[in-house]
Design a protein around this nucleic acid. Structure first.
Length: 257
DNA sequence: ATGGTTGCAGCGCAA
């Protein structure tokens, strides 16, 4: 069994002690991190390497930044979506143990109709085009990360309040749905079919965590070859409740490899 | 509630 997690960690430097504790407790084989918020030279590699993880980075100063951690060698690393010019560090892909994985930080989009929103939709189009190529390889593939999109109203604590708002607007949802229609499986929803209150992000503000006002915006999307191996997926909620938590909880799946 | 909180960097911006 191989355990793969995605986690928007919201600053690797602030969250390092929590990450180290979590790695020891959870023992994931592969971790896809987003929002590391630091340059590669500032990334605290040593403490993570001491827990026997290999590391691949696509970082930047202040904003964004993605990383791969793996107990197995990381090969064939690609930073950025091929064919998509982007000065923001939001994508890293590699092959680990014959499994192709990507850590993806889809733009938040700020507000529907804004420039940042247009950039989000362009990013999704580029991800769609690249995914189409990846799927021609007919291999086990995991596209994990913070998609900043709640796929349906079931994934939102208050669909009325969020109606056509950022993270929930129809064009964003269509972008994610078109990705899924290429043949990807939303592993958490696959293993928790009609379950309500299944969230991965809770706003720091207004007591969202305490009230369970969450959205499910972090996803592990699996190619058919990977989906065939899927045993379980879960949200690690306890780590969201601690002091100095990230505003996102990890999503963890197990593949029968 | 055009609020609320957090992180980075150097106090406004992004989420």
């Amino acid at each position: 069994m191989i355990k793969i997690a995605t986690w928007n960690i919201n600053s690797i430097r602030v969250r390092l002690p929590l990450l180290l504790t979590w790695l020891k407790e959870t023992q994931p084989d592969i971790v896809l991190l987003q929002e590391t918020k630091t340059t590669d030279d500032q990334f605290p590699k040593e403490d993570i390497e001491n827990l026997n993880y290999n590391i691949a980075l696509n970082g930047q100063k202040t904003y964004n930044g993605v990383a791969l951690l793996s107990k197995y060698p990381i090969e064939d690393i690609t930073s950025g979506i091929p064919g998509f010019e982007d000065e923001q560090a939001r994508y890293i892909e590699a092959v680990i143990k014959g499994l192709r994985v990507a850590s993806i930080y889809v733009p938040n989009g700020s507000e529907v109709g804004s420039d940042k929103y247009a950039y989000k939709l362009r990013f999704l189009q580029a991800l769609y085009a690249h995914t189409k190529t990846l799927l021609t390889y007919d291999e086990a593939l995991i596209l994990g990360g913070d998609y900043n999109i709640a796929p349906t109203d079931l994934d939102v604590y208050d669909p009325q309040e969020w109606h056509e708002k950022i993270l929930c607007s129809t064009p964003e949802r269509e972008g994610l749905r078109s990705l899924l229609h290429l043949g990807l499986t939303d592993s958490l929803r696959e293993t928790h079919r009609d379950e309500k209150d299944l969230y991965t992000w809770w706003d720091y503000r207004a007591g969202a965590w305490q009230n369970n006002f969450g959205l499910r915006i972090d996803h592990l999307l699996l190619s058919p070859q990977a989906a065939d191996l899927l045993k379980n997926t879960s949200v690690d909620k306890p780590i969201r409740s601690v002091e100095k938590a990230s505003d996102h909880a990890p999503v963890v799946c197990e593949l029968d490899i």
